[in-house]
Every structure is written in C-alpha cells, then in structure tokens.
Design a protein around this nucleic acid. Structure first.
Lengths: 331, 331
DNA sequence: AACCGTTCAGAGAGCGCTCTCGGCGAATCC
DNA sequence: GGATTCGCCGAGAGCGCTCTCTGAACGGTT
C-alpha cells in the first residue's frame, strides 16, 4: 500500500519515466495518444508527485515563509490585523500556486530555528511581518540570498524591499482634520517608539502641529487598549483643558474613550478623538470612532506581488500605500 | 556561491559523508575527536542540511498542515479565536520541532489543491479546523493514510479523532445560571445550524430548559455581531416580555446588547444576557458580558499532543474539555 | 601466537524525480 | 532518391541525503 511512483505509472502506461514526467508537468512535446494513456495511468493509480524528490532536483519548493515577529507586548495576536494580513497574503499566494508556511518568531530560541529552516531550502522566499524595531531577523535572512520582503518599513535601515502604508501622512491627515474642526489643544497618544508605526504616526502628528504653531501634548502607550486608557488619564492630568486627541491606533483609542467617559467628558463635544487603523470594533464604539483607514488587504497583496516579481528578476522598490480619513462621530 | 553539501563538509573535515551525517544527526558512535573536526567544518562552511534530500530518504518532513476551513460567512478571520488557535498550536508544535504549514480552505478550488498537497507528502500530519458542517475535507484526508486530528467535533460522523470543548454542557451551565437568577422567559440566539458549535449550544439550551419546563424561544444568527443584533430584534418582537437571552457566541451577544440598548431595555435589570466564548471584547461591553469560557489555548495544545501521540502509535481517542461560567454584570 | 568480539569509519546503493542528450522514424528539401 | 531536418521518446546521470553493510583496527581471551 505504498504511494505509486513515476516508475509505476510509466510501467502501467508502457512508456518511460521521462515521458510520464513530461505529461505530469504539462509539456507539449508528447503525442496526444501517449499523453492520454499516461493520464489514464495516473488516474488509475492515484499518482501524486513526491514533492521532496521534485524539489531536490528543481531547487524550488513553491512555498513561501510568512514570518511573524511578535512585538514585546503580546497583543499582536489579539489584533485583528494579524489574521487579516495572513489571510489575504495566503489567498494571493494560493492564486499563484504557492504554499504558505507560517512561522512565529516569538520566543528567543525561535530565531535560530527560523534561520535554519530558511537556510535548509524549505522555502523560495520570505515575507516578514515585524513591527518590532530592533529585530535582527530581517538582516539575517537577507544575508542568505533568499528573496525577502517586509510588511511595514523595517525600523533599522536595512536594504530590504517593503510595502507600507503612509503612516506619517495618515497621522497628518488626522491632526489636520482636528484642526479644521477648530480644535485648539490637540494631544496624542503615541504607540511604542520601538515600533515603526509608533514612530511614524507620532512624527505625522508633530508635522501637522508644527505647521499650525500649536504645542504638542504627548503620552505614550503600547498599542493595547489598556495602555490607551492609562495614557488618556495622564493626558487629562497634564492638561485638563485639552479638546482633542489623536490616538496612534484604534485599540488604544477605545481605551481612551473609556477613560474620557469615566472622567465625565463628552465625545466629541468636549474632547474629539481620532484613531488609526479602522479596525472593525471602531464602528461599534460609543460614539463610533473617527479613524484613519489603511488598506491592509491591499498592502498584503502588494507584498505578495512584490515578492513574486522578485522571483522573476523584477525590481524591488518599496511600495507605499495611501491612507484615508474615515469620519464617524468621535471627531 | 552555492550552499555547501555534506560532501563538501566531509572533504574539509577529511572524513566520509556517512560520518558527517552521523555527527549532524547526533549519533554517539563517533569518536569525540572526529566529531569535533566535523563540527568545526560545519561551522566554517555554514552547512545546513538540505531538507528536500533528507526527507526524500527519511520519508518525514517534520511539518504539519494546519488546514482552516472557513465557514460560509466570512467572519471567521475577524474572530479572535482564529489567531489564538493558530498561535497556540504553532507554539506547541514549535516546541516539538515541527513546522506549521498554514492552509486556508476557503475557495471551492482549494479542496483539490489541499488534497494534492497533502498527498504529495509535504506534511507528516494534518490538523483540521473546520467549524463547517458538510465539509468533505476531513473524510478525504483521512482516506489518504495521513494522521489527522480535528479541532472541534466533525459535524458529519466521520471516524476522526478530535478535541472539542463541552458546548452542550457550557450552554446548559449558562441557562441554568439564568434560571438560578430567577429568570422566567429565557430566549436564545443560536449559531448557524450547519456548524457543530451552533448545533450543540442550542441543544444545551434546550436540555436545560426542558428540565425546568420553560418554553424555548429561539432565533438563529450566523455568529456575526450584526446577525446578533437582528436576531435580538426578532426575539423582542416575538416576545416583548422576555427577561433573559442566552447567545451562542460573544460576537452575537455584543450585537444583541446593542439592540437591547436601542430598544430601551436595561441590562441586566430588564433582560439578562449570557454569551459564549469569553473573547476579549466581552470584558469591555456595556455592561461587561457574562459568558462561558472555554480554554481555546488548551484545546489547541491538546490537539497538537493528540496528533503527536498518534505518530508514536498512541491512542486516538477524542478529548472533551470543560467550560467555565464567567460571571460579569450582564447576567 | 592465534582467535574472537567489539567499536567505529567508509563504501555504495537508493530515495523519486527532472533534464540533457542521443537515437530513431517521419517529414522535408534539393 | 539520398541528405537533412525535425519531432518525439528513452536512457541515464545526478540532485543531497540516509542507512545498511563491510571491513579495519584494537583489546582481550585461550
């Protein structure tokens, strides 16, 4: 009851191994008559090519590693973005007949494991999802001569093609919206400064404020709901008069709304709130959250296309996708 | 600049291929002195075994497929459970030095793709996550002689080892809690009846009510927040006097809370609400949601252990994990 | 001194496939 | 009609590894 091999199919169809191989791989240099005979033998035996043997000679595996580096805070897995990215990248790769190998780079030991895995030729290319700043993985993998792309701009300046959304521009858009609405004291709850998203969105906030001569009021969270609630409390202590806050992501914005409610502030009447990400929950907050939407799905598929393009020797230029202001009731 | 092979390492260390293989695979029948020489050569050349060549002869790949069948409604990817299961299964497998290959069985074409992939020997075993009822995949894969386990009891009675939580018992627990609190008209919003979780939780609701001679009031949703809101509206129309509702999952419960608020009902004073799953958002609803917690992480790691056990010829008996009532303010 | 058991390294086959190369028959050309 | 080209199939090498089998070397026994 072993799995049939090429040899077995060849014997049954009365041809050589090479011919069967040609048919299975869709080459056109085979007489239709023989082709049919081979196909019939394949069906009858239920033949499926052995992938190890195939990739031993072709040096290809048709699978791609999706390496997810978790940030120090363990919230990433609760972040809906996580599954959205994985899902849309999978769909896109599936369409290109590539398989996805998911690797979690959480524990300290996993780095070596992942490097070994990639070095051993399991995959043809790597997609990195690493929000983390000082992550040594990108550089390490890039060094091995395997094509790599990154989801999100790498924090350390490593020569790595990436696809990112316009974090700076999005934050500017958010703050300008608050200015347009006549807000005067605009604070921000920034994300962790060892993540690129945290840095860039804070930079965007500063840019927009600088143009308008307002002073900046900054608290820092870690992208979790809870940290948003705490940061909001600090902001209110620092400046009870503030009338707007731009929050580095929606999760923290939800926490901030909670604090504002507890402190008796009305949103948006007393304090306007703008988030970032447009996660699904943003539609269901009280009041619904005005936020910056960035195209997660498009970003994931752009990343896939970038990597697939590199296989064909295409250019490896970074891609930056635009953001969009979604106005709801909180600002 | 090719990757070094066993041959190259053997040449450098001045030994045979076989000896290098022995050292690399940690056999103890090698003189320490030679062993050291080989290890040095391995380091100097940066040798990493070629996985295709290795698994061609060993017939093992040390990777496991995690096949996620999406239900017809596209919400699964937004369900936080999704990432939690993937994450904890990955961690557990990683500890056993196995790799995770993620496969999404969404599109209609993907079935054949997945079957081919598994048939071609890419993986040593398969973990199925399929909430979907009439899914033909479990049976198909089981037929190929590859060890398979299922996350959640398969809806069709297929002889497949699985790990599930006690959906029936959990639902009973929820309803009994409502009865204990003196509620008289207890409705339910059931999940889709082509998913096993939807069926079993409804069965539990019925069991508990039957014991107490209350009549059942049933609406059906599809596990999305929106469907919960709509179902709640129907329930209120059917029986404006109802004073409690057991909802098949937290996402729908959140929708139900929304409807209740809009209709002027106070929770829990007028209507008590109990959910199921204890997702993170359940702690942040208004009021915080009483719900049934089931150990997702434990369930995932139990599934991994079950599969790994099967490799060693262990038993393949189903595992059912207990649930727990988490009392917050909504009931 | 001859024999034997033991330990450990090397030789070589073979896992299942792809791909180049050569050969053979048929078609084409002068 | 003979030389040349072309299309199509088979033979066989080889991808990088594991693993069995063989054989050399060594120490201990009679």
């Amino acid at each position: 009851m072993k799995r049939p091999t090429l040899e077995a199919v060849a014997a049954r169809a009365g041809v050589s191994r090479a011919t069967v191989s040609r048919v299975v791989n869709g080459q056109l240099t085979v007489t239709p008559q023989i082709r049919d005979a081979v196909m019939r033998a394949v069906d009858e035996l239920g033949y499926v090519p052995n992938s190890a043997a195939r990739s031993l000679v072709t040096q290809r595996t048709d699978s791609i590693a999706l390496v997810v580096s978790e940030p120090p805070t363990r919230v990433f897995s609760e972040d809906p973005m996580f599954s959205t990215v994985i899902r849309s990248a999978s769909l896109e790769l599936e369409a290109a007949d590539k398989q996805v190998v998911l690797m979690l780079a959480g524990s300290p030991t996993s780095h070596a494991r992942i490097e070994r895995y990639i070095a051993s030729g399991h995959v043809d290319g790597v997609m990195l999802i690493s929000m983390h700043g000082a992550d040594p993985l990108p550089a390490a993998i890039a060094r091995m001569g395997v094509p790599v792309v990154s989801y999100g701009r790498p924090a350390v300046p490593v020569p790595l093609p990436f696809v990112d959304n316009d974090n700076v521009g999005g934050a500017e858009k958010a703050v300008r919206h608050l200015l347009d609405r006549g807000r005067r004291r605009i604070a921000t709850i920034a994300g962790p400064q060892d993540m690129i998203g945290g840095q860039d969105r804070l930079a965007g906030y500063r840019n927009a404020l600088r143009e308008s001569d307002r002073r900046s009021i900054v608290a820092v969270g870690d992208f979790t709901r809870e940290s948003g609630a705490i940061a909001m409390r600090h902001l209110l202590e620092d400046d009870p008069q503030l009338d707007a806050v731009f929050v580095g992501n929606d999760l923290m914005a939800i926490g901030a709304l909670q604090t504002l409610r507890q402190s008796g502030r009305r949103v948006p009447d007393d304090v306007a709130v703008v988030g970032f990400d447009d996660i699904e929950a943003a539609r269901y907050t009280e009041p619904p959250l005005t936020t910056i939407r960035h195209p997660i799905i498009e970003q994931a598929s752009a990343m896939v296309r970038l990597l697939l393009g590199m296989f064909k020797g295409g250019p490896a230029a970074p891609v930056i996708l635009p953001t969009e202001l979604v106005i709801r009731e909180s600002a």
